[in-house]
Amino acid sequence: MRRREFLTLSAASIGGVLVYSLDREVFRFSAQTNQSVHIPLRFFTQSEALIVAAAASRIFPSDETGPGAREAGVPIYIDRQLAGPWGRDRYRYTQGPFEENAPAEFGYQGKATPQQIYREGLKGLKGFNRLKAEEQDDTLKQIEATLFFSLLRQNTIEGMFCDPMHGGNIDMVGWQLIGFPGPRMSNYDDVDKHFGEAFRPKPAGLRQVTRRKVRPGEDLE
């Protein structure tokens, strides 16, 4: 058993939001500026999680257009994905021989799992979270062409816009940013109306809509 690691975030940074406790139950955390939240990590060490949090925040920043990866809980999302079957390459054909330098149109052909790609990639970003924003951007530009960065970018988008049951898109901040309502049982009365005008029903996650405790894929074997 590895030592239990936590990601500590200041409550102010994530506002009054839903976070996930140790037993994976959702509870609402009321924002108080002097408090912090300790989120148990499943894969990352604390220092890795801080680097991922900082990098994801440069990819999808919190800025004048609204909240970003920090508020959405993207590092929590990525941590869970890496600890789950996807991170262990349960969904990939992993028999050799491996042709690491295959043309792009054959897809990723390497041997390394997402867990290994992250662990290796994060080694190159030591101290990243303590850099200034412009320095962080310069550092990321240097690794833009790597597989690690493309995974990080893709996972950041996933963490922004996934159903909140996966740990990201906390309080549906991502969906609210773009006007996506989440799963709705019926759009029958609206699908052929609102032409040319934004129709923005209040978002709700899958567990709210179905009133069931749906199990996310990362918790399956």
Partner: peptide, 26 residues
């Protein structure tokens, strides 16, 4: 009844053939 989840169904291919067991070569 509860499959309306883009991540597990569209991105992780919940309903598809398990390529870890069998795929094709090209």
């Amino acid at each position: 009844n509860d499959d309306m989840d883009e991540l597990d169904y569209t991105i992780r291919f919940r309903m598809m053939q398990d390529v870890s067991q069998e795929t094709v070569t090209l």
